[in-house]
Amino acid sequence: MVDILRNYDVIGAFWVTIQLSALSAVGALVLGTVVAVFRVSPVGVLRLLGSLYVNIVRNTPLTLLMVFSILGLTYILHLPFSESASRNAYWWAVVMLSVYHAAFVCEAVRSGVNTIPAGQAEAARSIGLTFGQSMREVLLPQAFRGAIAPLGSTLIALIKNTTVAAVILGTAESAGTLAEVTENEGASLPTFLLFALGFVILTLPLGIAITHYSRRLAVQR
């Protein structure tokens, strides 16, 4: 076990996992919120775009998105992020994780919006707020508070889904390193448990925090 930690950069691999998770979480939250606003907007075209996005992205395997980012977008369409193959794969992984999880964030936020009584939006409109202002000031703040639990589940799923990025990042992140260790040292239960523990450390405190805040920040009606 100590040998594995000494011979392989397990900590460094988990650090990449954390970076991927944090960057993609921000990307998914921003993009998902925009798509959610599209989906509840009064403009039909935007609603259509929003639901197309969700239904296409949500039903595409993440592995396929990852492979497409390199084989399709980088090699065929020539859209690299960087000359360096590893940097290019890193940023494409962030983008694809963001794009994929944005669909789930959108649905979480939208269900949050749906829990808000219709009167809140009517009151916002009747004091003269525009659609954008109503969203920003009245609906989204309440929607996020109502959607903390599903948003949290999406975030935990995102952290674990960063392992899919191994298909393009190779050994740079934790799942890739696990594969490398297994290949070189043979499969062993302690190795699996070590990596599993790494993910538990990342996700368990998050789950507890989510439960805490989903209660504390709930909107009292």
Binding site: P117, G119, A124, R125, G128
Partner: peptide, 25 residues
């Protein structure tokens, strides 16, 4: 019909609802 002009007009028309509809947050 809609948009910014309607918002501006609504600002001049006060509305009080049966269910109050105060912003809960």
């Amino acid at each position: 019909e809609e948009g910014k002009e309607l918002a501006a007009l609504r600002a001049d028309v006060g509305m009080v609802f049966q269910s109050f509809n105060l912003f809960a947050h």
